[in-house]
Computed example of a mutant assay.
Amino acid sequence: MRILIAGGTGFIGNRLTDYFQKQGHEIFILTRNPHKLEYKERVSYIEWLNPHSQPETELDEIDVCINLAGTSLNSGRWTKQKKQQILESRMISTREFLRIMNALPNQPDVFINASAIGYYGTSKDTVFTEDTIVSGHDFLAEVCSVWEQEAQEAESIGVRTVITRFGIILDQKEGALPKIALPYKLMFGGPLGNGEQWMSWIHIDDVIGSIEHIIHYPNIEGPVNITAPTPQRNKEFGKTLSNVLRKPHSLPAPSFALRTILGDMSILVLKGQYVYPQKLETSGYQFYYPTLQEALEKIYT
């Protein structure tokens, strides 16, 4: 396959590129700085989002388009300026990706656009699936909602469009887990706030596996929850992590302190949602790590 990726040098994009490269596929990475990136076999770097850049002139037949671009949610306190960057980076990159696809001589088979389970808002008792129509009302939910609406414009040019709503992605070195695990490694780990908030997580290998599954199952379209089938409340997540790391789970982090330190970004750790991967399950995807114990043991042992 010939695969076009925006955000291909980020957390998920790097892993996805390496995986598809090993499978023998040809990868094209959209980037602002193509000349600063390290050479990889079967990987081409194409300039975009710079004045006068026209990436479509360097592309021919593309089978799969994947948009992962956008300012990280974890890149600092959510100031007014940061919120604007989070929203605008997603809208600008998605609009440009749509323009590029529309300019290609032939349309790709599928367009996969990132989103997040933050779309659903937060709840302690609701189970969210892809059948949930109404989005939440906080900042992250609103960002996901308008981002998804923009991405779904790809349907108007006849491209199968999939919106991947990522949960908390678990990896030893990147993403949220190293920050969650650090207090435990320093012997003062514990629940965040009251510990009752749900954590809908997924191992990085299952993120890659889910995307590959989506590519090869043409009946999958629209939103897809990229989460494991066994969400855990924060306090149970912490207990499992402490058992795997063989560290104590005893000192809770007060909600007011986290709100003071993180501001609006505290919603990522103090509130959550139970998100179930209904489409992945009904389409037959087999998780590598369906339980948190299995996922954490794979990462840390």
Rank of each mutant, 00 (worst) to 15 (best):
Q286D: 08
K83F: 08
S156Y: 08
T57M: 02
A257T: 11
L251S: 13
F97K: 00
A176P: 15
L16Q: 06
M1Y: 10
E212F: 10
L292K: 05
Y45H: 03
D206Q: 04
Q152W: 12
L270Y: 03
K179Y: 15
Q149F: 07
L186I: 06
S255N: 11
R77C: 12
G189P: 04
D206Y: 01
I169F: 11
G209C: 00
G222Q: 02
I12L: 07
R2D: 13
G263M: 00
P218D: 15
F20C: 00
I168H: 13
E56L: 11
L241R: 06
I267W: 02
E26V: 09
V143K: 03
V127F: 13
A181L: 04
I112E: 05
E294Q: 12
E150A: 12
P178Y: 00
F11T: 01
F166Q: 07
T301S: 14
N243C: 08
K279F: 09
S156F: 07
L37P: 03
N194G: 09
K235V: 14
F11A: 06
K36I: 09
L245I: 01
G272K: 00
G10V: 02
L258A: 00
Q197G: 10
I220C: 07
P105G: 08
P248I: 00
D138G: 06
S135Q: 03
G284Y: 12
I133C: 14
S266E: 01
L73W: 15
L280S: 09
G8W: 00
N33L: 00
H249T: 02
D109P: 07
P183S: 03
L251A: 14
T132G: 05
D63H: 06
E38D: 10
I169M: 12
F11Y: 12
M1A: 14
V146A: 06
I117D: 06
